[in-house]
Amino acid sequence: MKRIQITLLALIFCSILAAQEDYTQSLDGIEWVKVESKADIIVRTHGEKQLRIKAKASSKKPEKAKGLKLLGAGGSDNTDVGFYVVKEGNNLIVRNLRKWNNGNAEIYLPANQNISVTTNGTGQSDIRIYGFKGEIEANARLNGGIKIEDVSGPVTANSLNGGIDISFVEINQDSPITVYSTNGALDIKLPGDTPANLSLGSVNGEIYTNFEIKFPEKNGLKSVSTQKIRQTINGGGVKLQLKTTNGNIYLRKE
């Protein structure tokens, strides 16, 4: 019996220790959280009203760096988890200082937080965002792709070379959704009953959809020609603009 109690205590102690390694920051007076990274980044929601950056075993400093601080392009590590975090007015800047993928840096925020996530890595630097109800801006400036799931918008997403996958649980009708890419493909999933004004365009790519888009000369609803398409679905609603230069566009009904 005593042994079990000791084990339990030890376990609790360990978990507290582990929890203490996470970095947390209050979000009082913060309108936007702006995340910048040169490596892969994952942003998730949680029930707490604060920012939490999970400490990962792989994010620990090497033995030789003991007593030293990690320096990055945008500042020095003031979080002990490899991030530089600073308030700028009502923005909270969260900068990932590592240039390599340290077992996926994970950031947790309340679901209604407005977030802006930018990656600028020459290597793979993907953005993954799950479950937000606030506004989302995602920019993969170089080689990363973007994956956004279970969100309601508005979303403003842009990539240079990576693809963009977004699945919406519903569409916020307040302000427009734009998903643009130069070389990546767009794969967008919407609930079938979403009212929207669609504006789709691809310079060199193709556009595919199973929404009923009426075209006088095209039969079937598989390929709906290139260039510009303007259509309303379900009676029309908020503007939904999908544009690529060289990639394909896939617009799916859920």
């Binding site: 508005p154 979303v155 403003t156 302000s175 427009p176 734009t178 603009q241």
Partner: peptide, 12 residues
């Protein structure tokens, strides 16, 4: 506006 989506709404 601070939000890109709102600025796009303005442009449209």
């Amino acid at each position: 506006n601070k939000s890109a989506s709102k600025r796009i709404q303005g442009v449209n």
